[in-house]
Simulated assay, not measured.
Amino acid sequence: MNSELLRGRLEFLREAEKLKDVLRSAHTSSGRQESTAEHSWRLCLMALLFEDQLGDLDLLQVLKMCIVHDLGEAIHGDIPAVEQGAHPDKSQQEREDLQFLARTLDAPARQRLLDLWDEYEGAVSTEARTVKALDKLETLLQHTQGQNPADFDYRFNLDYGRRYTSATPLFQALREQIDADTQRRLDAAE
Rank of each mutant, 00 (worst) to 15 (best):
L6H: 03
L6A: 01
E11Q: 14
L13E: 14
L13I: 02
R14V: 00
A16Y: 06
A16Q: 00
K18S: 15
L19Q: 14
A26V: 11
H27T: 01
T28K: 13
S29T: 13
S30T: 14
S35C: 00
S35H: 05
S35E: 12
T36M: 15
A37I: 05
W41M: 11
F50W: 15
F50E: 10
E51P: 02
D52F: 04
D52E: 11
Q53V: 01
G55Q: 11
L57T: 10
L57W: 02
L59G: 07
V62I: 13
L63D: 02
I67C: 10
H69W: 00
H69C: 14
H69F: 03
D70Y: 07
L71Y: 06
I79T: 15
V82D: 09
Q84V: 07
H87D: 09
K90S: 01
K90N: 11
S91C: 07
E94T: 06
R95V: 07
R95W: 07
E96P: 02
Q99T: 13
L101F: 12
A102S: 15
A102L: 10
R103F: 03
T104W: 00
Q111E: 14
R112L: 12
L113H: 10
L116K: 01
D118I: 10
Y120K: 07
E121R: 15
G122W: 06
S125G: 04
E127A: 09
A128Q: 10
D135Q: 07
D135A: 11
L140W: 03
Q147D: 13
N148C: 03
N148I: 05
A150D: 12
A150I: 11
D151A: 11
D151H: 00
D151Q: 12
F152R: 06
Y154V: 04
Y154P: 04
Y154R: 01
R155H: 11
N157K: 07
L158Y: 05
D159E: 10
Y160R: 04
Y160D: 03
G161S: 04
R163D: 08
T168G: 01
L170W: 03
L174W: 12
E176Q: 10
Q177K: 13
I178F: 08
A180P: 05
A180E: 14
Q183R: 14
D187E: 14
